[in-house]
Design a protein around this nucleic acid. Sequence first.
DNA 1: ATAAATAACAGTAATAGTTACTATGTAGGA
DNA 2: TCCTACATAGTAACTATTACTGTTATTTAT
Lengths: 131, 131
Amino acid sequence: MRYSHQRERIFRAVSERCDHPTANMVYEQLKVEMPRLSLGTVYRNLNQLADAGRLKKIPLADGSCRFDKTKESHSHIVCDECGAVSDVHLPSFESFEQAIESETGYELRTYDVVLRGVCKDCRACMDQQAG
Amino acid sequence: MRYSHQRERIFRAVSERCDHPTANMVYEQLKVEMPRLSLGTVYRNLNQLADAGRLKKIPLADGSCRFDKTKESHSHIVCDECGAVSDVHLPSFESFEQAIESETGYELRTYDVVLRGVCKDCRACMDQQAG
DNA sequence: ATAAATAACAGTAATAGTTACTATGTAGGA
DNA sequence: TCCTACATAGTAACTATTACTGTTATTTAT
Ligand SMILES: [Mn+2]
Ligand SMILES: [Mn+2]
Ligand SMILES: [Zn+2]
Ligand SMILES: [Zn+2]
């Protein structure tokens, strides 16, 4: 994979933020400083970076994709109200793997565990409105 | 919700199969006997049935949705090769919930755990091809 | 039983997220 | 410096799904 200025900026953008941005969020951020950048380029490069193992792609159930600077296997929790995506540590999820493989006959490759709920901020908002 | 012939047939179609069909799979099955049925009607009714709690909606990471006759919370495993969706029992996943809520500050609503791997049949195929 | 109200329908257009295409530009090696 | 492959911007196409529009069917009221 040959060097490109755009790709490195896209990589840095994801690496420097903790909110698991979408392609469009990266595009909106970068186009301020790079007015000629196109959304297609962002998508293409994010996927290339994920294929190359420099980023992790997290496809969510709503059809959108998030990109993650953390490459190691870990789980996520999504706020149903504001859409925020946060990391969550699932203790000893790995211990299930053996049992699952023998129960299902599947050879397990990956697991993308996405929990859903309401974040602290949104709970506060909702309580205020209700109260 | 008022009775409709179409809705009951759509409900029965999902109830009678174990492969977690998509809206389109239900449509393909039913249109043979109901030539005037439309895909939009299938989508609308599957979502209504899910909202009413008569079916469970399982949005997958690839953007497609599966519908499940089993309404209780349970997890799924998807074959990366053939796309098959099977049930899988995750022992004591519930025991994590408390820990997750205090770690993240989220109020947990649901978890749609989708594992991915290769099913027994597809493994056999792949082994054969490899020789 | 008939008629009025309205929920559901079929058909089609629109949408969102993403990928593919095409012509132009640029990185990096000979 | 010049070549070639890869990257780009801009745009069209795509897939799964939802929304719109005029028609039909189910329910309720007479
Ligand atoms: Mn993460
Ligand atoms: Mn199931
Ligand atoms: Zn929130
Ligand atoms: Zn398979």
